[in-house]
């Protein structure tokens, strides 16, 4: 029981940053924009969150700073791709380069300093229940935030007019424009939302996961987040399942190793990727599902005719 509990708790922590970063990107892509700079925004979010928390002593200030940093960087991306109509794929990659460098520059003074940790919550009476307590009522705040964002995103995208507009902009920007919606404006907001989520995901790494700042601490999680969005075929709840599945396979790999059965560790390390590919093949086999969800204008620039 204890072992199972620790595995479940570990999976939740491992999945949360992936979920945060990818839910933001999901909204960005739903509006028709492909931002490959998630890794860069996460890194800057991580360092700014860490620094702000360290200076003020408050992890919540850190969280806000991480969000702000992600938003600022995403606005830069927005300016280039939306206002200046530069290529989204290349700009996103350049943003990753810039973000990683920038994070390293900002963080030079933070190396080797223990950070401020955002503690787990504790609800008297509930957190104490065996197993269910710590899993459901004893997480850190951001775990709940990530799930609330998923629920809210799912609701807004599919049950509200706002969601309809976002999807219209992503599926057919010309018609959305003809109907009088500001395509560029909607996309700016979505890109900024994506930046906020990526920054928050970075902050999760440096404030909860491992409260410290070191260069390259994002270690490729931004790319996995991008992959998860496609894996989830742009559906928020499927995204949550994907993020938790990915976390589960990674952690199970470690558990199998620790039991000492002598499987090559490379094989176990590659499992999450292989499983993602296989799952994708299975999901994609159902053509109707994916086709309907893929934003038709993904990655295409929009310039209104006047």
């Amino acid at each position: 029981m204890n072992e199972l509990l620790s595995i479940v708790l570990t999976i939740i922590t491992a999945a949360t940053p992936l979920l945060l970063a990818s839910i933001g990107e999901l909204v960005v892509e739903r509006s028709g924009v492909l931002n490959l700079g998630v890794e860069g925004m996460m890194a800057v979010g991580a360092v700014c969150g860490f620094g702000a928390a360290l200076m003020t002593g408050s992890p919540l200030v850190g969280v806000l700073a991480a969000i702000a940093a992600g938003v600022i960087l995403s606005m830069l991306f927005g300016f280039l791709t939306l206002t200046m109509v530069s290529n989204q794929v290349a700009t996103g990659l350049a943003l990753t380069l810039l973000g990683l460098g920038l994070a390293g520059m900002i963080g030079e003074g933070f190396v080797g300093q223990p950070g401020v940790k955002l503690e787990k919550i504790s609800i008297p009476g509930l957190t104490g229940i065996p197993f269910i307590g710590p899993v459901l009522f004893g997480q850190d705040l951001l775990v709940y935030v990530s799930l609330i964002i998923v629920a809210a995103t799912s609701y807004v995208l599919f049950r509200t007019k706002t969601g309809l507009i976002i999807r219209a902009v992503g599926d057919s920007h010309q018609s959305a424009h003809a109907l009088g919606y500001s395509v560029i404006g909607v996309r700016y907001l979505c890109v900024m939302f994506g930046g906020a989520c990526s920054g928050l995901a970075g902050g999760y790494l440096s404030l909860v996961y491992t409260p410290q700042w070191v260069e390259n601490m994002t270690a490729g999680r931004g790319w996995i987040a991008l992959a998860l969005v496609v894996f989830a075929s742009w559906l928020p709840w499927r995204l949550a399942i994907g993020a938790y599945l990915f976390g589960t396979i990674t952690i199970l790999g470690f558990s199998l190793q620790a039991v000492g059965i002598g499987i090559p560790s490379q094989l176990l390390s590659s499992l999450p990727y292989v499983v993602t590919i296989l799952a994708l093949v299975v999901i994609s086999g159902n053509r109707a599902l994916t086709r309907a969800n893929t934003p038709a204008c993904l990655g295409q620039p929009f310039v209104p005719d006047r």
């Binding site: 072992e3 570990t10 270690a219 952690i251 470690f254 620790a258």
Partner: peptide
Amino acid sequence: IKIVWVNSWYDPGKEADAAKVLFGQG
């Protein structure tokens, strides 16, 4: 001893996960 290879010299997240798993296993 229980051994976990993380296939990286440097990945705080993975190292933290491995540590939690190992503590969980006793």
